[in-house]
Design a protein around this nucleic acid. Sequence first.
DNA 1: ACCTGAACACCGTTCAAGT
DNA 2: ACCTGAACACCGTTCAAGT
Lengths: 249, 249
Amino acid sequence: MNVRRVGQTGGSRRRAGRPGPGRKTLSRDRILEAALRLVDAEGIDALSMRRLAADLGVNPMSIYHHVSGKDALIAGLVEAVFSEARPPTPDEGTWQERVRQSARVYRRLVRAHPNLVLALLADAAAVSVGIIQIAEPVYAALDDAGLSPLIAAHAADTVADFVHGFVLGEVANPSGQWDIGPELLSRTDGHQAARVPTMRRIFESLAEQGAQYDYEAAFEAGLDILVRGIEGLAADARAGDADRSDLAS
Amino acid sequence: MNVRRVGQTGGSRRRAGRPGPGRKTLSRDRILEAALRLVDAEGIDALSMRRLAADLGVNPMSIYHHVSGKDALIAGLVEAVFSEARPPTPDEGTWQERVRQSARVYRRLVRAHPNLVLALLADAAAVSVGIIQIAEPVYAALDDAGLSPLIAAHAADTVADFVHGFVLGEVANPSGQWDIGPELLSRTDGHQAARVPTMRRIFESLAEQGAQYDYEAAFEAGLDILVRGIEGLAADARAGDADRSDLAS
DNA sequence: ACCTGAACACCGTTCAAGT
DNA sequence: ACCTGAACACCGTTCAAGT
């Protein structure tokens, strides 16, 4: 955890010359740790100041001495989750492979605490902190691809947006069905079904071949599209350079 | 609104032969309408059964006669928002333009009630209902592009995930800064900045040319990448077909 | 400095009672 | 059938008081 300071293992080390009177003293880190454990185990709705205090064996009001309120508590939680992780930064392979690897790492980071994903994605500041963890190798890869600064920024945002949307789908629908599969189509009456002939045909075809939804495959398929698309933009940029060379010569 | 039945304009039409005693009678639709108005005006946190009852001039418990609880209320709200809209379905232009147009329409649908976006995206069932509203033209376009059923499904999901992630960013950060802009980079100390040289260079370059973040441009740039990527998959599919023809001949 | 108890103004929901 | 009042078990947070 260790949100603010680093190099302090836990609450077990007593302060020099001043042994805690009742054993462990309350601290921001101890609070965040207990809160995260509670959220992971029972969901974000189970997190209340009073319940958290009970878990810590402390008066509810004591918590307010270390965090200013519940909103700040959740913000601290989200920040801690994104700050604690130092994901490995890919630095070898083609730029395509580095983009893919960064997206995989980022997905794992966002998914690390499923019950916190919603609060996490709703917190713009936290998302910035999370993105900066993995953004440098993405930008380096996009730079290697030959994109302009503006297009590189847009491409990096698009990859991040895809990961956010994908993880949201994963945690909202952990069973892993197709968003719109045979069940939903069959629920619609004949009138409805007649209005979506292509979907009906495609999903019937998927059902025939016994295709099961697979989040890993779906994520990789999304990366296929994104990387292919970025390749296209890079080709445009090269063509643009060539045009300008032609004009100059 | 009119979640279940259609063709009933409001609460003003009294039932035949039975005039309401105290004027307007409570109904599921009236409840959802008031709840949506409250959420739009004051945010999702302002929505409480007691507050809603007060807005309706009714006892809090009366609401429970029409919806089973608060969770069901929010689910009903989300369902209503996605069901009420019959977005225009693009059916002319290239398949690329139809995919883009569908994504734009879907973005507008998801964004229609910003304070509800989080609840909306967290509700897998609601998202399915929303997607089915705009999915047919997407699937038709992807079919025209020549994608296999499985790849078409993955591509449609990827477009949806991108829209979800994009809108989430929009509502979480409505001011419209870069997720990771000069501010965040300058907040980091020299040690940090040295670790993200490419990002630093790219954002300095953007700042020099006075680039402002623009959600519309960013969304279109995302669509550029997605459509380009799908074009690449379609080219693969054609090449695969050609290969098989070669083998067969 | 750090913690606490009591209190305030809210919650969602159950249940038995009204008409 | 539809609505209500009182009650229960919770909330987040303020404030004055303890050590």
